[in-house]
Simulated scan of single mutants.
Amino acid sequence: MAAHLTSKSDVYIFGVVLQEMIIVRRSMDKNRPNAEHNLVQWARPYLGERRKFYKLIDPD
């Protein structure tokens, strides 16, 4: 597979890593329910509003 890395892909990957650190979940986790396998897709609805964003953060 020929993946061409660009500055956009670097920014996207940085965002995913940042989400992993804040939410304390892996970016792909098949042990979670189907709707939560992909961290980015699962977290997207929560990122638009501040009140919802705080629900994502791991309390521990």
Results as ranks from 00 to 15, higher is better:
M1Y: 06
M1E: 09
M1C: 09
M1K: 07
A3C: 07
A3I: 15
H4V: 10
L5G: 07
L5V: 09
L5T: 10
T6A: 01
T6F: 04
S7D: 13
S7H: 08
K8D: 15
K8M: 13
S9N: 03
D10S: 12
V11D: 10
I13Y: 14
F14K: 14
G15L: 03
G15N: 08
V16Y: 01
V16A: 11
V17M: 15
V17T: 12
Q19W: 12
Q19H: 12
E20S: 10
M21V: 09
M21N: 09
V24M: 15
R26F: 05
S27N: 11
S27T: 11
M28D: 09
M28Y: 15
D29W: 03
N31Q: 07
N31P: 00
N31M: 07
N31W: 08
R32S: 02
R32H: 06
P33E: 06
N34F: 12
A35H: 08
L39V: 03
V40G: 02
V40W: 08
Q41H: 13
Q41W: 14
A43Q: 00
R44E: 04
R44D: 12
P45F: 00
P45I: 02
Y46E: 03
L47M: 06
R50K: 11
R51F: 06
K52S: 08
F53D: 00
K55C: 00
L56E: 01
I57A: 05
D58R: 13
P59W: 00
